[in-house]
Design a protein around this nucleic acid. Structure first.
Length: 938
RNA sequence: GCCUGGGUGGUGGAACUGGUAGACACGCAGGACUUAAAAUCCUGUGAGCCGAAACGCUCGUAUGGGUUCGAUUCCCAUCCCAGGUACCA
């Protein structure tokens, strides 16, 4: 038995114990309630973990351990999202297979994670780049390919059910999510088709489908990117420019699920801001689609989408996006030059230009007029880049009285502004988007209110075949192809039909996993095809047909991984029914907010799809989600004299008296903002040994600033270093003590000693550091000791139940301080304390558990202490006595005293009498067990 | 601009449904122990004022107003910070 707190030995020993005894292996155990706590799995980058990464893992580990103590069967796994760009880029540079880099990085991550003492069930570890894992990613892709979305039943169904419907009724009245331009056919035409024609027709309905879509093409990375991988016109990774390009790509019909993705948000316990981000991303707009006739052109009509069909009598112009495909055919000869010039100019402008010039009005008249369907009013047709080709129909009706952008446009081109509601005012200065009042100048809806008018118009338009109510989403279908090597191969090959068109076919399920072929280089081919085009000539399906050369995007493997953890070794299913029935869904999911619209949306989509097919039980996969706040860096600075012969540094407090330049200094040689001058001299070649330091009070004090944590700013703090110095338990306690989990906060190692001291204080309750003796005793606990303990039990439990991890640490500190004051070394008390401490500081707790000579084994499955309210009953309560809300004194009263008795007692008190000074109070308010307030007349 | 959070000592933060603002910790100051240092322990620490001192007083949770016996907490307006989003018709 040790008598000093030797954390390194203790931690190594217990980590080995847990590994050897597989202490945290989870099982399907119907006798216990289950709890599934999941971290967003990391991409194993070459840089390893920094001190910010484990924050969420610590919190989830605390919950996992807490739930075990409460008798839950806990699933707490970890794995790696191991396909990705950095490994591939490293492979391009070095020629080394990305699997090797990935393996090395994962090994390092696992070591770092194990050093933190996390209670992961490592037997369930998954890696998205392992064939045994990605075969199921491929399998899910195949299910998506074999499914369509039936809007009648509002769920995905197998493609056979669609074939049945087509054979019976054709597709004329079919309510399915599909490509817009799909020809509607009768049952006869369907039945007359040959197999190949049928197959080609069905491609329009599959949830995974090929499409010539406008994609974000990033030449710098040589691949397409999803919308959420593009930030401000630049790629999120690497910051390369991104352009719009039409390419034949695999896509996923996530829009089929738009409404369910929206509705599902109501049943999950996620933060408001996250839900709001998803709502904005989905971007549901309820409105109408209306067709406008074109003057002198009969074969075309312009479709617009509007959320304010009620304002249609206020239309005074119409605008097309400059990229609209009819621009040429709708331009009159006189306007041809002007239009061409404008389109060229609009094309030349980058995303960034457009964003920075939002307020500037630009546009050009096409020479053509369109006719308003409700009153045949003739209005001019313009092009303008405030209309986006990618949203709605790429055409907008201009209502300057009700829309600010339309108003700006009308002012600029001197177009009429027609008031349409009697409640609108001040049309000279700005638009008025009100829906209040009655319509004027509005033909059939004159005198009506907003709701009635909208209804009336939609009904009228539907009857006359010129428009219909419509719901528009901002969200687009998700592009699923990436022109890269290091991703899941798409299990598809291409076979030509009679006409020679290549049609995609799935390989057999029995042929999974469909593994990545070996290639010589990880670059695109000379003809610009994806890297898989470099595979040897015999890499063909049945030796005949080319495989798909794109691979899946990063989000494929991460969109279902929580199910694999439930049954990670299963060779015949992605997870057994038994496992899914038991674990169901994630009870607590912790990860960064950067995944708000990417991972969390795609995952919800795939989960809903798997539920539609009956493979999983829950509509939403993560019931509760917490975004841990990012840990920012806290940089330190030294200040060097600018015009000095000798290299001289000035302490922070004196820098204003000199002309100085601030330089980053490695935070690891600064303690509490005081620079270790010798270490500084050693670490920097540009600092000579005779450099001078102008000190304040004998110290060199550094300045500080909050910045991103990065190598170049010398503010990266490595958890390994802190573990070596203070131990993993201290680091865990400290990271939680730093503040609320969800808050963004700068890392500051300064006060870690407080957490370390706390654990040493706990140690000293068990062992005397000077006599080296264990001073635990078996005596019965006093009422005071029990009161201290149970106050803590109540608060720790309450706070953990609301994920307030930082206040639990304070509570434990108070408890330990008070027990120390009481010189309590009683086993019955300390036993419960150690159990409460164990989720935060598991290693020291295991060690102390042994000292308590408890049952052999681990503390991990002990029982969390039960709060006993009877122990906290006090016979007296000290009432704060306030006058007009200001507390002046406290007076004790019996806990059973009635408000009237208390009031009498308070008024009889000498001090109160003195303050009252003979004046009778206007009112006395007694709140039992809280406060007494005496209201003095003014 | 819009959406979502947030603004409390020198610092990180606490205060659950309105009820003694600043718990806990860091830092700082002073003291004890020690030859000394480390470690540990004790005391003090929001600002200002009165006083020899105990005691006491005033102000104080971004700013201004409101509701209330009582507001860090609820309401209105303004300012600032962070995250998200953006000519979305």
């Amino acid at each position: 038995m040790r008598s000093e707190y030797q954390f390194s030995e203790i931690e190594k020993q217990w980590q080995a114990f847990w590994a050897e005894h597989q202490t945290f292996q989870a099982q399907v155990n119907p006798n216990k309630p289950k709890y599934y706590v999941l971290d967003m799995f990391p991409y194993p980058s070459g840089a390893g973990l920094h001190v910010g990464h484990p924050l969420g893992y610590i919190a989830s580990d605390i919950m996992a351990r807490y739930k075990r103590l409460q008798g839950h069967e806990v699933l707490h796994p970890m794995g790696f999202d191991s396909f990705g760009l950095p490994a591939e880029q490293y492979a391009i540079q070095t020629g080394q297979h990305p699997a090797i880099t990935t393996e090395e990085n994962i090994t390092r991550y696992i070591q770092q994670l194990k050093n933190m003492g996390f209670s992961f069930d490592w037997s369930r570890e998954v890696r998205t780049s392992d064939a045994s894992y990605y075969q199921w990613t491929q399998w899910i892709f195949m299910q998506l390919f074999n499914s369509w979305y039936n809007q009648e039943t509002d769920r995905a169904e197998s493609i056979e059910s669609l074939e049945g419907i087509l054979a019976q009724k054709g597709s004329i009245g079919l309510k399915a999510v599909c490509d817009e331009e799909v020809a509607r056919i009768s049952a006869e035409s369907w039945n007359a088709m040959n197999e190949e024609e049928k197959y080609a027709y069905l491609l329009n309905f599959r949830l995974a489908y090929l499409d010539d879509s406008v994609v974000n093409w990033c030449p710098g990375l040589g691949t397409v990117l999803a919308n959420d991988e593009v930030k401000d016109g630049l790629s999120e990774r690497g910051g390369f420019p991104v352009e719009q390009k039409k390419m034949r790509q695999w896509s996923m019909r996530i829009t089929a699920y738009a409404d369910r993705l929206l509705r599902g948000l109501e049943e999950v316990d996620w933060s408001d801001s996250l839900k709001e981000q998803q709502r904005n991303w989905i971007g549901k707009s309820v409105g109408a689609e209306v067709e406008f006739d074109i003057e002198n052109i009969t074969d075309k009509k312009i479709k617009v989408f509007t959320t304010r069909v009620d304002t249609i009598y206020g239309v005074s112009f119409m605008v097309l996006a400059p990229e609209h495909e009819w621009v040429d055919s709708l331009t009159t000869p006189e306007q041809k030059d002007a239009v061409e010039a404008y389109v060229t100019w609009a094309k030349s402008r980058s995303e960034l230009d457009r964003m920075s010039e939002v307020k500037q009005v630009s546009g050009v008249f096409t020479g053509t007029y369109v006719l308003n369907p409700v009153n045949q009013a003739r209005v001019p047709l313009f092009l303008a880049d405030y209309v986006l080709a990618g949203y709605g129909t790429g055409a907008v009706m201009g209502v300057p009285s009700g829309d600010q952008r339309d108003w700006n446009f009308a002012k600029h081109f001197d177009l009429p502004i027609i008031p349409i509601l009697d409640a609108q005012k001040d049309m000279d200065k700005q638009a008025d988007a009100t829906k209040e009042g009655k319509y004027i100048n509005s033909g059939m809806i004159d005198g009506m209110g907003y709701k009635e008018a909208t209804q009336t118009l939609i009904v009228w338009m539907e009857n006359h075949g010129i428009g219909k109510g419509k719901i528009q989403y901002r969200m687009r279908n998700a592009v699923f192809s990436r022109q890269r090597y290091w991703g899941e191969p798409v299990p598809v090959y291409f076979k030509p039909n009679a006409k020679g068109d290549l049609l995609p076919y799935l390989i057999q399920e029995s042929e999974l996993p469909f593994e990545l072929p070996k290639i010589d280089k990880y670059l695109p081919t000379e003809t610009g095809e994806p890297p898989l085009g470099r595979a040897s000539a015999d890499w063909k399906y049945q030796g005949l047909y080319d495989y798909e050369w794109s691979t899946m995007p990063g989000w494929a493997g991460s969109s279902w991984y929580w199910y694999r953890y439930m049954d990670a070794q299963n060779k015949s299913e992605f997870a057994s029914k038994e496992a899914i029935d038991y674990w169901q869904a994630v009870d607590l999911y912790i990860g960064g907010s950067e995944h708000a619209t990417g991972h969390l949306l795609y995952s919800r989509f795939w989960n809903k799809f798997l539920k539609d097919l009956g493979y999983v039980k829950e509509e939403e996969f993560a019931k509760k989600l917490i975004n841990q706040g990012m840990i920012q860096g806290r940089s330190n600075f030294v200040y060097r004299l600018k015009n000095s012969e000798k290299v001289t540094f000035v302490s922070h407090g004196l820098k204003n008296q000199y002309d100085v330049v601030a330089l980053h200094v490695d935070v690891n040689i600064v303690e509490n903002d005081v620079l270790d001058i010798e270490a500084f001299k050693r670490s920097r070649k540009d600092v000579p040994t005779d450099a001078e330091f102008i000190l304040e009070q004998g110290k060199y004090v550094c300045g500080w600033e909050v910045e991103k944590m990065s190598k170049s700013k010398f503010n990266v703090v490595n958890p390994d270093d802190l573990i070596a110095k203070y131990g993993a338990d201290t680091l865990r306690v400290y990271e939680m003590f730093l503040g609320p989990l969800e808050q963004f906060k700068p890392w500051n190692t300064n006060s870690i000693s407080g957490s370390h001291n706390f654990l040493r204080k706990v140690w000293r309750l068990f062992f005397d550091e000077t006599t080296q003796k264990c001073h635990l005793v078996d005596q019965t606990a006093t009422a005071d000791e029990l009161r201290v303990l149970h106050t803590a039990i109540r608060k720790v439990q309450e706070d953990l139940d609301r994920y307030s991890f930082n206040t639990v640490v304070s509570t434990l500190m108070i408890c330990v301080n008070e027990l120390g004051q009481l010189k309590c070394h009683k086993k019955s008390i300390l036993r419960e304390l150690v159990i409460m401490l164990s989720p935060y500081a598991p290693h020291i707790s295991e060690e102390l558990w042994v000292a308590l000579s408890e049952e052999p084994g681990t503390i991990s499955y002990a029982s969390f202490p039960v709060f006993n309210p009877a122990l906290l009953v006090e016979d007296e309560f000290k009432y704060p006595i306030s006058f007009n809300g200001k507390v002046r004194l406290t007076l004790p009263f019996s806990s059973t005293a009635s408000p009237l008795e208390i009031e009498a007692g308070v008024l009889a008190d000498a001090q109160v009498q003195k303050i009252l000074d003979g004046v009778a109070p206007a009112k006395v308010i007694v709140v039992p067990k809280r406060i007494v307030n005496i209201v003095l007349a003014k």
